[in-house]
Structure formats: C-alpha cells, structure tokens
Design a protein around this nucleic acid. Structure first.
Length: 630
DNA sequence: TTAGGGTTAG
C-alpha cells in the first residue's frame, strides 16, 4: 500500500451518517484527511502522472472513497479518468467503488453509465446502484433493478434488502414492499436489525403500525434506529401518546434517545398541539446533553410555533448552534402565521444581509407573510426578487401572489395576473381568487372562479362551501341551496369541523353540536353564560355563515355550538384564571366564532390562541392579531 | 466495495 494512503481511507465512511449526532464531525474528519494529505487527491494524481508515486489498486480505491465521503464529485471524475487509463481498470472492487462514488454524490446518470459499461456485475454492483437510486429519491428506479438482479442469478444480501425496503417505503403502493418482505423471510434476513428497521419503517410509512410493531417485536436485536423508526411511525400518524410510551420504554430497555427520537416526538407534539408534553421532552433533551443542532432544533422550533408559543420558538431559533435554511424558513413561517408580517419581512431581510441563500420555501413564506399582513408592495417586490436568486416560482408562489392581490382587494389585477402567468392556472390558483371574492363580497367573479375550480377539482368541498358562503352573505339563499344540492348530487362531503384543546397533558376533541361529551351540560351552560356577557358588550351573532333555511333564532342557536366555541367553554371551565388558552381547529375559523372569541378575550381578560388551517389568531383584550384579515 | 431512522411551505 502506498505511504500516502492514510489508514482512515480504508475504514468505513459510515461515521458521518451515524445517528445524526456528528454535527461538525464531517468537518473534523475532513480536517483530519487534509492534515494527513494536505494537497488532497488531485495532488496525488499529479504525483502519479509525474512518476513520483507508483499507483496500486488500493490507492485508486482509497481516493474514490475519499471523494465519496467528502462529496467531491469533480475530483471523483478525475480519479475516474485516471483509473480507466490505469492497468487496474479491470478490478471489480474499484469499479464498484467508482459506481458508489457517483451514486453517493447524487450523480445517478454517471453511476448508471458505469453500471452499464461494466463487463461483470456482482451483487455489490447491483446493490450500490439500487442504494444510489433509493437514497436519491428515485425509488422506482431502485425497485425495477431487483427482478433484473434475480434474473442474472445473483442473491441479494442484507445490504440489498435494506435499500430495496427503503425504496419500497417511498412508493405509494404497498405491493412492492410486501413482495420484498416475502423475499426477506425466505432469505432469513427479516430479523436482521438493518433489514428489520427498514422493513418496519416501510410498514410505518404505509400507515400499517400493527405490521411495523410485529416486525419490531421479531427483531433478533434492537438498536436506536429500530426504536426511532417505530417512534417516527407513530409520530407521523400524529399519535404523540404512543410515541411517548415508546420513548420511555426504549430508555427502560437501555437505549439512549438520539436526535432522531427527539425530532420525531416534537413533530408529533406539533401536529397535536400538545405543548405541555413538548416542554417536558424539551427539558429531557436539555438534560441529555445532546446539542441543539438544526436537525432537532428545527422540529422543536416548529412545535413551539404550532402550539402558539411564538416566543419560545424564537428562543429556540436564537439558541441553535448552526441554523440552516430550514431553521430560517421555519422561523419565517412561524412569525408569518402568527400575524407578524412586518417582523417576518425584517427577518427575511436580515437573512439576506448575512448572506443566507433563500430557497423556494423561503420565498413562499415571505410572500404568504406579505399577503396575510397586507404588505402589497413588498410582496410584489419579493416575487420579482426570486429571479435574482434564480429561484423558479412554483404554483404555490403564483397562488401566494393571487392571494396577495386578492386580499388587498384589487381583484381585477389578481384576475389579470392569473391570465398572464406562464403556467396553467390550477384549482388552488382559482381558489385564492375565490377566497378573495368572498372577503370582498364579489359574487360575480367568485362564481366564475368557483366554476373553474369545479372543472379542475370537482371533489373538493372547500370551494363549494366558499361559494355557498358568498351567496349566503349576499342573501342569495336559493343560489346557496343550488350549490348544496350540487354537492349532494356529486357526493362531495363537507369536512366535519373539529377542535382540540390541551388541558393538563391531555388533548380533548370537540365536534360541532357535540352531544357525547361527559361535561356537555356544564359546557353548554358556560357558553350560554359567556354568550350573555359578550352580548352585553356588543357581540352580535353573525348568522350569515349558517346555511340553513331556518329563522334567525334557529340559525343563531346553530352557531353557538361550533366546535371551537365548545372547546373554549371547556377550557374556561377547566383552566386556571389568567392562563393562556390554546385551541386548534381543522378548518378555517368562521366569522362569527372569530368575533365571539375577540369579545370573550376582553370579558375574561385572557389570551386565547386559535390555530386554524391557515394561521394563528391571538385574541387579546377584544382584538385579534390577524386584524380581522385572514 | 454495498444498508436502516428526523424537520420547513401549500
């Protein structure tokens, strides 16, 4: 072996991927390599050229592995050229390493070319390409290779199965995953911890938690990854409680939680709005001694933001060791959704000032912020700014601009923008215009936009409901009824409204006209009492949102049992005075509930935070952070 | 020489 080959080069490169805890690790490793070979691989190639080093097969292998590890594609290409002109170009192992280098550096076309041109392909060759596709988000390409590999008589090993299962987890149908599972059983790899983890992850991503648990239970030995895969599965299904049970169990069985574990838990709590539980686990993370790297900090930040605790989200952002673009985007989203449009814009400007490159999501955040805060000029300016950063607008950016113009009330310009934009308008584009028409009571244009949506996406109940609302607000009950009839005939169903509130570590769910709740009578009494008090200070029920052919009194009664009002009454009954109330709703809050919540916040002198599908509403002393603009 | 688990927008 050449003296220039550091022992490091022949060790596996798996350390940097290990458990995501190696923040700064790659840098250290790179420094280590550079220290031992200060001039890097290119210098070594020069020395081979000028004859001061006589190459051996191991040297090429080492150089390629170094490029793989450091993601140095350009250097890898040069080593490739050198290698094919060497006397060792027939070495199978080096050809495999070369293929792997291209695959790991994301150059799948080159990896494929190497594969196609190889005179002999062994199991590692096939596995390296399968892994390349699987890890680079091309699962179908990975899966179609499998039958080919079997056809030439090669037997997959547990490396192959792990990658195949990862690929199968990335396609919508479960068929492939099940088939590969069958092969795993036949080959006896099912209980291998790598294969098993990939297998249970595949089932968990398909939503089949029972199958995932079964595989987990059958593992010969478990490690942090297998626990994390199962916890992540529950988290994705928004089963925070189940994830939490596993979190304690894994520790009882002697496994330390990793960044992955915390990250999954925080995302589960973010989806259910379980702030108290989230705070507990945050404290646990702090005590664990793990660093607050972006990997986990981003989910923590998001959890606080989604639970309505924007100040805590900001604290997390400020404490992050090395914020990445996702951290910035999450923080921008958080302040935008909490109605702090100006703050979002300032933060975005700061991001640009310090030289952070915005991406496609960043622009979407900032455009949405401008739209929600009514910052028309800024929004238009930032849309133009996308060109400077070479960020291609996606449909969602066009939607944001339509929303921006529409909310500002310049509906004709919004419509013109749709006609002149370079992409075909989608249902979401017309939906933004329809929403604006509802806000500014433009029935004619609203009906036109709704027609376009019905053509493009006839099964979405949202636009039907919006159009209904437009007609109902204008008193056009007959037209509203026609839309209802249309929905009924075409089988379009309105999503049932649902609200959640967390009290003492438990999340309580409410649906409209909830008869089943054990505290039903107390809740109704509380709301009636509250309703009386807010009426005294000026609350007038807004019945234009109730689409029923009934008299005003009945419509008013219907309004009073919306799920968010029930959740609020329940929170008032079960929380200490002066504490903040946090409620989450699965659809957009209606105008009447919004008005009632403002009055309640004044009467009870408490902050109420309501999260709906679009944004957060902070009600305090009779007003809302959205400035009635949502 | 080849492997598995996490996050931001809509």
């Amino acid at each position: 072996m050449s003296v220039l080959v550091s022992p490091h080069f022949v060790t596996t490169s798996a350390t940097s991927a290990d458990s995501g805890e190696s923040d700064g690790g790659e840098e250290e490793e790179e420094n280590d390599i550079l220290r031992k070979n200060p001039s890097g691989g290119l210098h070594i190639l020069d020395r081979i050229d000028n004859g001061s080093i006589s190459p051996d097969p191991m040297l090429y292998n080492t150089l390629l592995k170094r490029c793989t590890h450091l993601g140095k594609l350009k250097e890898g290409r040069m080593v490739h050229t050198h290698f094919v002109n060497s006397n060792f170009n027939h070495y199978q192992v080096i050809q495999n390493t070369l293929l792997n280098m291209y695959a790991k550096c994301g150059s799948l076309d080159n990896a494929r070319k190497v594969f196609d041109e190889m005179p002999v392909r062994d199991m590692v060759t096939w596995t390296a390409l399968i892994t390349g596709y699987s890890q680079n988000d091309r699962p179908k390409y990975a899966l179609v290779l499998f039958p080919g590999m079997l056809r030439v008589g090669l037997k997959p090993n547990y490396f192959t199965f792990s990658s195949l299962l990862k690929a199968a987890a990335g396609v919508p149908s479960e068929r492939d995953g099940r088939q590969i599972h069958g092969y795993c059983i036949k080959s006896g790899y099912e209980s291998n911890v790598y294969v098993g983890s990939a297998l249970l992850d595949m089932y968990a991503r398909c939503g089949q938690m029972d199958a995932a648990e079964f595989v987990f239970g059958g593992l010969m030995s478990k490690n942090e990854v297998s626990w994390n895969a199962l916890i992540a599965g529950h988290a994705r299904k928004e089963k925070g409680e189940d994830a939490l049970v596993l979190f304690w169990k894994m520790q009882r069985e002697g496994f330390e939680p990793t960044h992955f574990t915390y990250s999954s838990l925080f995302s589960a709590f973010a989806s259910t709005g379980a702030l108290e539980q989230g705070k507990w686990i945050h404290a646990h993370l702090t005590k664990s001694g793990l660093k607050l790297i972006a990997f986990v900090g981003n989910t923590l930040l998001d959890m606080y933001a989604k639970s309505g605790s924007i100040e805590d989200a900001r604290k997390v952002f400020d404490r992050l060791i090395k914020p990445d673009v996702v951290s910035w985007n999450s923080m921008l989203t958080a302040s935008a959704q909490h109605g702090r449009g100006e703050e979002t814009v300032e933060r975005f400007e700061e991001m640009l000032r310090i030289g952070f490159e915005p991406n496609v999501v960043t622009f979407l955040c900032v455009l949405t912020a401008c739209s929600h805060a009514g910052l028309l000029d800024k929004g238009q300016y930032y849309f133009e700014l996308m060109k400077k950063f070479k960020v291609e607008p996606e449909v969602t950016h066009y939607v944001a601009v339509v929303d921006l113009l529409g909310r500002a009330g310049i509906l004709d310009r919004a419509e013109r923008f749709i006609r002149e934009m370079p992409i075909e308008p989608t249902a979401a584009i017309w939906g933004a215009l329809l929403g604006a028409c509802r806000m500014h009571k433009n029935m004619e244009l609203g009906a036109y936009a709704a027609e376009r949506i019905f053509e493009l996406d006839p099964n979405d109940s949202g636009p039907h409901m919006l159009l209904c609302n437009i007609y109902a607000t204008a008193g056009r009950w007959r037209d509203a009824a026609k839309v209802r009839k249309m929905m009924k005939e075409s089988g379009v169903k309105k999503e049932p409204a649902c609200s959640w509130v967390e009290i003492e570590n438990a999340v309580h769910t409410f649906v409209a006209n909830d008869d089943a709740h054990p505290q039903r009578e107390d809740i109704c009494k509380m709301w009636e009492k509250m309703c009386g008090r807010i009426k005294e200070i000026g609350y007038v029920p807004d019945t234009s949102h109730v689409l029923l052919f009934v008299d005003v009194r009945e419509r008013e009664a219907k309004l009073q049992y919306h799920s968010e009002k029930l959740a609020l009454a329940f929170a008032l009954l079960n929380t200490p005075p002066e504490s903040t109330i946090r409620i989450k709703k699965n659809i957009r809050v209606c105008g009447d509930c919004h008005s009632a919540f403002k009055f309640v916040s004044k009467v009870v002198k408490r902050e109420i935070i309501l999260r709906d599908t679009n944004r957060f509403h902070h009600f305090c002393d009779g007003s809302c952070s959205c400035r009635d603009y949502w």
